[in-house]
Design a protein around this nucleic acid. Structure first.
Lengths: 95, 95
DNA sequence: CCATCTATTCGATGAGCGTCGAACTATTCG
DNA sequence: CGAATAGTTCGACGCTCATCGAATAGATGG
């Protein structure tokens, strides 16, 4: 059981699990993880969903702690929190 | 990226993600994983849900490949598939 | 100031799913 | 055979949530 990062609360574990359970949201997370930083518009170019829905998913991912939002001018940039992700996987391995 | 077991299909990845997303189902999975083998009745003793619901969750976990059902007489025993679980986590780590 | 652009918020809608009780199947035992 | 036990299946109910269009907020540029 490789231990990485601090232990996540049960609520955060569940929030991450729910965030990953939706295919579209997981695809968005993958995109953000691969680009390390990407605005809403970039996500929209790869996902056939409305801006409102993307914003909704971003809030979910943000609430789960998987991404951090950084507002720059009129755009918003998201960065993947690999530490949280690793902690999540590490904790799941202790089942 | 530690590689364990064969690659899971996208459908199976999503099925596992959905199975884990529900708190009750995850609790059941934890119980089965800890006991390596346990009948429906044992699950029911620890979860305040009806037999019908347990059967439903078992089908979900089974469809996801996380447990294997073994019918012995009139009872059903479930065994956790650690290999599939490890493959799931391994694949998630490649995000 | 006004128009444009990016993103968020709001309300509504529709689908999915967790849950239950009841009916059913299959097995065990007297 | 008949009763009891273990799970499953079925239909229905409620709640959650992904999705959208429209309205809004905030920033940029003419």
């Amino acid at each position: 059981m490789a231990k990485k990062g601090p232990k996540l609360s049960d609520e955060q574990m569940q929030a991450i699990a729910r965030a990953v359970a939706d295919p579209r949201r997981f695809a968005i997370l993958q995109q953000i993880a691969s680009q390390e930083c990407c605005p809403c518009g970039a996500v929209r170019e790869q996902q056939p969903i409305s801006a409102a829905t993307i914003s909704h998913h971003m809030k979910e991912l943000s609430d789960a702690g998987l991404v951090v939002v950084n507002h720059e001018g009129r755009t918003a940039e998201f960065t993947f929190q690999r530490g949280v992700w690793d902690s999540y996987l590490s904790q799941l391995s202790n089942i």
